[in-house]
Design a protein around this nucleic acid. Structure first.
Length: 442
RNA sequence: GGUCCCUUCGUCUAUCGGUUAGGACACCAGAUUUUCAUUCUGGGAAGAGGGGUUCGACUCCCCUAGGGACUGCCA
């Protein structure tokens, strides 16, 4: 239904055009979804959709020209006749031919007709593709495609040619499922004596299993990546590496990609989407992302999940995010890793933690709390040192009470290392949670 | 059936006639470690098959196999 064309302007900018010959307006919402997805990706700033049906008059003008040139003809073939011809053509291993191609159109007598392009039967058509290289088609293998339907509306293959010509499109870059159409479209350009644009047919992206990426629209899927916890810049980087490479470069900026990119370097074979690698790339970007931005994203995720966000907890969220972000592959995971700071006292402890809280450990945690309370600089380095010193003073390893302390602080939800967890929670909340465990409310 | 496209580690890719075929993700092993994760070190892993061309082919040509697209009054 849609075809996204990326055409390079002389100014070096891209014009993104959504084609739609469908007369139903319901498609508008789908177009919206596409642009929303592109906007999220950050690549559709000055794009504008063009609806083909609004240009139907211009398309019909072009057909009138072709008719006058003798490069198109009226075809009165009925549906039954067409079907019979299809069966016969397939059996004979040839292309469908219309009986009206060389007949005099005046025999019309009011019957319905379509207008077909009159393609040459001799010679070959060369599509010098920027990605696939020179591809030759024997003209006799190309059937006469319909230009205008019985109701007078233009078809896709006519509309793209006319619109692209009128808009001065120089490069047509699209999925390689259109490679066959390129030959037919080239013929139309030539018949109208228009300049044929450069074509570049890039391979489609397949799913992890090698099959095509589901029926959903690509852009709609792009929107879903946001909800799955991926950063747009990470998506851009990962997507750029699918079907294209620049030496050993894996992580690079938009500027570098723009500088390095050459359509000639695009790989010919379809690539599969690999979630594991996407996660890795996303992790790298999360790691380097601005903390305030990540905190805002994580806050939204929690809110979306219905997690209670108390005013007192928000600063803790901001403190926790930078401390755990290196371990997160997605912002969803980042939310999981920060959940512990949002829990409200007294925490409901998990069974594992409960089991660890024997009298000995309880006593030790009490002494630890007393040790930590006066720590001056409530930050990872000094807290780390304090915990170590405490373990040494107790004559045991951190392992003897570490797991229990974590459980008491997080209630069993994922939490970072002890010093980071304490830092994120803050002095008051940390000590409070420990004391809650020491003297559980009845 | 016909036309066209594609084929390097499991995956994404580098190589553009001469390399021990490189990197990344994943995987395995080890180290670190208070959980998970992170981090560090090491390891296994590829030119679909067969013919050519050439002093020499992953690179060029042909064939076969496999995968895909098109074959609509869909786009």
């Amino acid at each position: 239904m849609f075809n996204l064309l990326f055409a390079r302007h002389t100014g070096g900018r891209f014009l993104i055009r959504v084609e739609d010959t469908d007369r139903e307006r319901s498609t508008a919402s789908a177009v919206q979804a596409i642009f929303k997805g592109l906007d999220w990706l950050g690549i559709a700033a000055d794009a504008e959709p063009v609806f083909q049906h609004t240009r139907a008059n211009r398309h019909r003008e072009a057909v009138a020209d072709l008719l006058a040139l003798g490069r198109a003809y009226r075809d009165f073939t009925t549906a039954d006749e067409l079907e019979a011809e299809r069966v016969e053509a397939r059996a004979e291993g040839r292309v469908v031919r219309s009986a009206w191609r060389d007949r005099d159109a005046d025999q019309a007598d009011g019957r319905l007709f379509v207008v077909r392009f009159k393609g040459p039967h001799e010679g070959e058509t060369l599509v010098d593709d920027l990605v696939k290289g020179p591809v030759r088609f024997q003209n006799k293998e190309l059937d006469d495609l319909v230009l205008l339907r019985t109701d007078g509306t233009p078809t896709y293959n006519l509309a793209v040619v006319v619109d692209d010509h009128d808009m001065g499109v120089t490069h047509v870059i699209r999925g390689d499922d259109h490679l066959n159409n390129a030959a037919r479209q080239s013929l139309i350009y030539q018949a109208l004596d228009w300049t044929v644009p450069r074509f570049a047919h890039i391979p489609l992206i397949h799913g992890p299993d090698g099959a095509k990426l589901s029926k959903r629209h690509g852009a709609q899927a792009v929107g879903e990546f946001a909800g799955m916890g991926y950063l747009p810049e990470a998506m851009r980087n990962y997507l750029a590496r699918l079907g294209w490479g620049h030496g050993d470069s894996e992580i690079f900026t938009d500027e570098q990609a723009a500088e390095w990119f050459d359509i000639a370097d695009v790989v010919k074979a379809p690539a599969r989407l690999d979630w594991a690698k996407l996660n890795h790339v996303n992790q790298q970007y999360i790691r380097n992302a601005d903390d305030a931005r990540l905190t805002a994203i994580v806050t939204e995720v929690h809110r979306g999940r219905g997690v209670a966000l108390h005013d007192a907890a928000l600063p803790r969220l901001a403190a926790a995010t930078p401390l755990v972000k290196e371990a997160a592959h997605t912002t969803l995971e980042l939310a999981d890793l920060t959940l512990f700071v949002l829990l409200t006292r007294p925490l409901t402890l998990d069974d594992k933690t409960l089991k660890r809280l024997d009298p000995e450990t309880l006593g030790r945690l009490g002494r630890l709390a007393a040790t930590l309370a006066p720590v001056k600089d409530w930050a990872p380095p000094s807290l780390e040192a304090a915990i170590r010193a405490f373990a040494e003073a107790e004559g045991v390893g951190v392992g003897r009470f570490g797991a229990a302390l974590r459980g008491v602080l997080s209630g069993g939800t994922p939490a970072p290392d002890l010093a980071s967890a304490l830092t994120a929670l803050g002095r008051e909340e940390s000590l409070g949670r420990i004391h809650d465990a020491l003297s559980p409310a009845a």
